[in-house]
């Protein structure tokens, strides 16, 4: 299998403060990798650094295909509140000046499990789960090889969480999209991911196969994370 992303010796700074220290990892096509850490450990910074959205970065980030797409935590801020769902999904097509946009939007809505009549709704008229589906649809419109999902289910109800996770899992299986799944909840990460990395204070302190990390953690910190959920 080919590599889709490789990060080597990445240091990132924000306002002169170092946030990430010497991060190195790589992802293969169609792989789901979980990145676990508590708030403030730099996991969102890592996501933005991978997308070249942090100005001060040292190290090497190599994307094998085009830019990855991102799904955000807060479904209230990740959609333009003044645009209808159909128009939001159409935006990437407009930017690329594609034809038959309406059909593509409708087929995408079906793919991510949104009813057709939602096309004329504004984001404020949707539930959290529906919004997150719109975000996933927007990301998929660009046929990415890799999706970075930053806490995509943390703000959702548990019943909705399960459905959104299933959608991500199905996309990975059907379209072979790699997912970098960022979360603070090891349990959710274990459900979905093939490989788990534990981030603490800007450093990756443990990484390995899902079962290894989950059932046989090496680090004290990982054990602490696990004890919180069991």
């Amino acid at each position: 299998m080919n590599e889709i992303l490789s990060v080597e010796h990445l240091n990132a700074y924000y306002k002169k403060k170092q946030i990430l220290y010497d991060i190195s990892f790589s992802m293969k096509e169609g792989e789901i990798v979980g990145l676990v850490g508590e708030s403030g450990c730099g996991k969102s910074t890592l996501a933005k650094a991978i997308l070249h959205m942090i100005p001060k970065v040292e190290g090497k980030i190599v994307h094998m295909t085009q830019m990855p797409q991102m799904i955000f935590q807060d479904p209230y801020h990740s959609l333009n509140p003044m645009m209808k769902v159909g128009r939001i999904l159409e935006e990437p097509l407009r930017i690329r000046r594609e034809k038959n946009r309406k059909e593509k939007v409708l087929s995408m809505m079906e793919r991510v499990g949104l009813e057709e009549e939602l096309i004329d709704r504004y984001p404020s008229q949707l539930s959290g789960g529906q919004r997150q589906r719109v975000c996933i649809g927007v990301a998929l419109m660009q046929n990415p090889g890799l999706i970075i999902a930053d806490e995509p289910v943390s703000a959702l109800d548990v019943t909705v969480q399960a459905k959104v996770l299933k959608l991500l899992c199905a996309l990975n299986r059907d379209y072979h999209i790699a997912i970098l799944f960022i979360s603070h909840d090891l349990r959710v990460v274990y459900e979905l991911c093939d490989r788990i990395m534990i981030l603490k204070d800007g450093r990756i302190i443990e990484q390995g196969k899902d079962d290894e990390v989950f059932f046989d953690p090496k680090e004290e910190y990982t054990k602490k994370l696990l004890s919180a959920i069991l």
């Binding site: 899992c169 909840d185 349990r187 959710v188 274990y190 459900e191 899902d210």
Partner: peptide
């Protein structure tokens, strides 16, 4: 009760 994440792999 079903939607509580269990310690198991998600299957679709």
């Amino acid at each position: 009760l079903d939607s509580i994440p269990k310690i198991r792999k998600l299957t679709v």
